[in-house]
């Protein structure tokens, strides 16, 4: 259940997802920009490490569906939305700062 990696690195309290709890994530990008690609890659990596088998990622390309920007009040690109579990979380950027992503996703309480 516990990730051995996390136990070693994290000094703060870990928030481990409940078993069977499913994470629904949505990543808004704009085309195949390097930033978009980096965000997707970073997200995949984090999810596979912390939420193995418990997540789904939907990628929304605003270049193809600009009208979808309104739904989640998307201003910044890339934006990651955690729809489930509630409450909704919004993380922006290319997700290169893993610590911040973990905090943003409530996978860790605070940055060390």
């Amino acid at each position: 259940m516990n990730n051995p990696d996390m136990q070693e690195t994290a000094k703060d309290e870990e928030f481990v997802p409940e078993p069977g709890e499913f994470w629904t994530l949505k990543l808004y990008v704009a085309g195949q920009s390097p930033r978009s690609l980096a965000a997707f890659a970073n997200l995949k990596k984090i999810c596979s490490e912390h939420l193995p088998g418990q997540y789904s990622i939907e990628v929304v390309d605003l270049l193809e569906h600009p009208q979808l920007a309104a739904g989640d009040q998307i201003i910044a690109i890339p934006t990651l939305i955690r729809n489930l579990p509630t409450p909704i979380r919004k993380i922006i950027g290319d997700l290169s700062n893993t610590d911040r992503v973990l905090v943003g996703l409530d996978l860790r309480k605070k940055i060390t």
Binding site: A69, P78, R89, I92, G93, R100, V103
Partner: peptide, 12 residues
């Protein structure tokens, strides 16, 4: 609600 984690723009 917003957490910044890396480089972004305001394309949205």
């Amino acid at each position: 609600e917003i957490h910044e984690a890396g480089d972004f723009d305001l394309e949205g």
